[in-house]
């Protein structure tokens, strides 16, 4: 278990700048997450699965596009594990691959309406695409 996917695990931990070993399994992140209902893997599972190198399921999860970096888990985590940063790092390791963009520019016009602020598109493109 320890060595499984260890290079990806180390990379995710490095770019996130957090330490999943500090987690004491309190569940504060999943208690506080406003996107929990749309997630197939909950924030606390990200922490544990990354630490254990069980990252494959996370790469294919819906959760990485549900987290909006509202920083609630990061603010309230009593152990400074800051799960949002780990989820962000997993998402980046997916979308940084060629052709792995989540949002296709061609699909965007259909999503627009008259009042939609520019920042919605800018933010989504930055979060979902490389």
């Amino acid at each position: 278990m320890q060595n499984k996917n260890s290079s990806l695990r180390d990379e995710i931990i490095r770019i996130s700048g957090t330490n999943p070993r500090k987690c004491m399994l309190c569940g504060k992140c999943s208690a506080t997450c406003p996107a929990f209902d749309g997630m197939d893997y909950a924030p606390h599972q990200f922490v544990n699965m990354i630490e254990n190198g069980n990252i494959e399921p996370l790469l294919n999860s819906k959760s990485i596009y549900q987290c909006l970096s509202c920083f609630a888990c990061l603010e309230r985590c009593p152990r400074t594990v800051e799960p949002a940063k780990l989820i962000e790092a997993v998402r980046l390791s997916v979308i940084r691959k060629q052709g792995a963009n989540h949002l296709k520019p061609d699909n965007i016009p259909a999503l627009l309406d008259e009042d939609l602020p520019q920042q919605a598109i800018v933010s989504a493109m930055r979060k979902y695409n490389k």
Binding site: L25, G27, K28, S30, A31, A42, H44, A72, R76
Partner: peptide, 22 residues
């Protein structure tokens, strides 16, 4: 319940407790 409370919102005469059940 093994879990933590993340948010409490007073609404009307109840307290809306949002928590995790791990």
């Amino acid at each position: 319940i093994k879990g933590m409370v993340g948010k409490i919102a007073p609404e009307g005469d109840v307290l809306k407790v949002q928590a995790s059940d791990l």
